[in-house]
Design a binder for these strands. Structure first.
Lengths: 201, 201
DNA sequence: TACATGTCTTACCATATGGTAAGTAGTAAA
DNA sequence: TTTACTACTTACCATATGGTAAGACATGTA
């Protein structure tokens, strides 16, 4: 991939995450690099294809991260906690992608974009797999395990996306305190949920 | 408020939730009622003011719902769980507003819209208030309590917004099973978190 | 009757948008 | 030197957008 093409992809990712698909014009993206929109069209053909390329790269990156993280033969509960905390750290370091994926989640309504759906599917599968390896969850239904996992994932994603609003609400200081408290709380919640097992009917 | 004005507001809420601010033109909204966009401009003056009116109404409704729900002098842990489950039910019945508020969360980035921030602030305040009334949480820092509450709220909101993607991933059947499992899991998680108290340093 | 007001329409406009067409400059192989 | 290709540019276009201006029609009120 050429240098410019890569740079265009980077800019597009940032802008789409910030303002959404309709909020960004291809001219906006090209301008950021001092190019005309036709230079962009030369590389990507259309706005839709540019957006597709952005999603595809994210999906690739996430999948490889998940694969490399699920190595050990340690306690599944610990690994689950670690994976979520890593997810959280990754979100804090680069909230851009969370924002973009959240927008995708919202816009999916009937388009059901595959890139995002598949990344989510595999990622969730591995988390659910970890949970049902824990003794207290071994007899849970898959819907139950999925619910539990999805709550944890949702908590992380929602928090990551909320940063600007939280800062507006509680000031930078309050936000930093919550940021510090959040990871250990997630870890704690994971062990609570794991120990408790699925709810009784 | 006139009949048409109300109807325009309803349509606008649906469309903005579905496609976002930039994804909807005022002509789109007016068309839905067989009107011209100038009829809309007559009632709301500008697109921005229309959007503001949508947010304002949602904020009003949510606040009154929270106020009416926090009556009793029952066990705070139970009330917390009930409030979240009610929130979840409300989301399932009318996911539109969750989608819109999630978009607001994303678009807030520097605009820092007050309507939504304030609705969230009061709502969260009452939840945090409930949590620290529980004996095991009485000595927690406010950042810790906030983290815990925000995880639960985030879990609900994220799930609600995920519906289309979840259906695409697991089929209608799988989605319904998860929908059934989710409320009791939330209740269970709440009691787990409440009983466990804040994490140790 | 005359006037005002609220609801909506047609006419119009400046600007932005995604995209096509055609050409220019540079580079590398034949 | 010709040919071909890549990476762009300027010129252009049909369409959509938010918004203004002015008028039509109905209803109520002096």
């Amino acid at each position: 991939m050429s240098n410019t093409k890569q740079a265009l992809l980077d800019v597009a990712e940032t802008l789409f995450a910030e303002r959404g698909y309709y909020g960004v014009s291809i001219a906006n993206v090209a301008d950021e690099l001092g190019l005309t929109k036709q230079a962009l069209l030369h590389h990507y053909g259309s706005k839709g294809r540019l957006y597709g390329a952005v999603l595809e790269r994210i999906s690739r990156d996430y999948l490889s991260a998940v694969a490399s993280a699920s190595d050990a033969d340690r306690d599944p509960a610990e690994r689950l906690g670690d994976l979520l905390i890593e997810l959280f750290q990754r979100s804090l370091d680069n909230p851009t992608r969370d924002r973009l994926l959240m927008r995708e989640l919202l816009d999916n309504h009937e388009r059901a974009n595959e890139a995002e759906a598949w990344y989510l599917r595999d990622f969730l599968k591995s988390l659910v797999g970890l949970l049902v390896q824990c003794p207290s969850w071994s007899r849970a239904s898959s819907a139950q395990a999925f619910s539990a996992v999805y709550q944890l994932v949702g908590a992380v994603a929602y928090f990551s996306v909320s940063a600007p609003t939280l800062i507006a609400m509680g000031g930078k200081l309050g936000y930093r305190q919550v940021c510090n408290a959040f990871p250990s709380q997630i870890g704690h919640t994971v062990t609570s949920v794991v120990d408790a097992g699925p709810p009784p009917h």
